[in-house]
Computed example of a mutant assay.
Amino acid sequence: MVAYTRSEAKQWTRQHMVKSTNAVPTPFKANFSLDLPTLASHVDRWAQDELHGLMTGGNTAEAWNMTPTEWWQYSETVAQANRGRMLLTSVILDPSPFTVLEKAHRLAELGFDLIEVINPVIQLRSDSDLFDFYKYLNDHSPLGIVLYNTPTAGVTLNHGLINRLADLEMVVGIKNGLLNPADSIALRKQCGDRIVVTEPMESFYLWDAIVHGGQCLFGTCEYVMFGRKRETLVKYMALADAGKFDQALPLYRELEPLRDLMNNAFVWNIVRKNQYSLAPIKYWFELLGFRMGPCRPPLPAFADEEMKTAIRDTLISTGVIDANQAAA
């Protein structure tokens, strides 16, 4: 059952899209089939670790590379393992509004809270067509719609269009995944009174929260990936939310080596190639004790040894894991 009515969707989202919502990889077996028991175990552990929100179904989850049957098995496993403990958002990558809505209704039944819909990847390019796409979703979706503005879709939404979409009752937020904080600042000034505008760059959160009205990290994965340094992240975010810059800054700086590692292992490939290179991220999760297995073809199954060494050495030197964890 959805926790809000249509008229309550925007305010509910404002109150609940806070703290950290992590987009996490999906575990696969050696034969590239879904490892659903391991997925359920991971979801339970993330809930026990007090992760606020879990984002499923997106690029980091390799959901684009699942069959429809697998996608449903994956989504049902997440919902059943969560048992209402974390905010659940499902990314939907389909270009057909009918497919999006079919999924949205079933996800609502499973207990998901929001859907994040990628910009249509084919056919629709004009502002008029894009508006009509989201208007149709708005009129029929049982769940609040978060826009997923990313160049990986092949088209990005301009501010004029987003401003129009922000007036729609069930459009409740946006993940502005352009890796350009200045764009998110301008967008928040324009329509942040009607939708929650999120900037996914954790490296910007201290300033975003204190100066520009940011209220969450949405669709990243630092909460899980920072391991034993998680409390440092949580503390500086809380201080930033309270406007206590001087107290937050030393904690923020402690995490700089991990940001550099994240950029080298993952972010720069998105910037340069619009490509999610997940094998290094899966190895990072493995070192934290989360069995992940390979990435599915045609992606490289595993990270190369040079990248593995860089990840392992940095996680040990920063205290995210210890040498015994790395050896295991």
Rank of each mutant, 00 (worst) to 15 (best):
I185L: 15
P151K: 13
L101Y: 01
L233M: 14
M307T: 12
K175T: 08
N119K: 06
G154Y: 02
F28Q: 12
H159Y: 08
T67F: 14
I145L: 01
A108T: 07
F218A: 03
F302C: 13
I316V: 10
V320D: 03
Y236H: 00
M307R: 05
P298F: 01
P200M: 01
F112W: 07
G160H: 10
A238M: 01
E70C: 03
N158I: 08
L233E: 09
S41A: 14
L233V: 10
N82M: 01
R83P: 15
I270K: 05
G177F: 09
P200E: 02
A166Y: 02
N274L: 15
S33L: 05
L178E: 06
G58C: 00
G192Q: 05
F131N: 01
D241T: 13
N22P: 02
E231Q: 14
L251V: 00
G144T: 03
L36C: 12
A328M: 10
T232W: 11
A326I: 08
C295V: 10
G144Q: 06
G219V: 02
P297D: 11
T309H: 14
N65F: 07
A238N: 01
N82E: 04
D241M: 13
S75P: 14
I162T: 07
F204W: 09
N149D: 04
T77C: 07
W71F: 15
L165Y: 01
L278C: 10
A104Y: 00
H52R: 12
N119T: 12
S41V: 07
A30C: 07
D35H: 09
E62H: 11
F285V: 08
A104D: 01
L179Q: 08
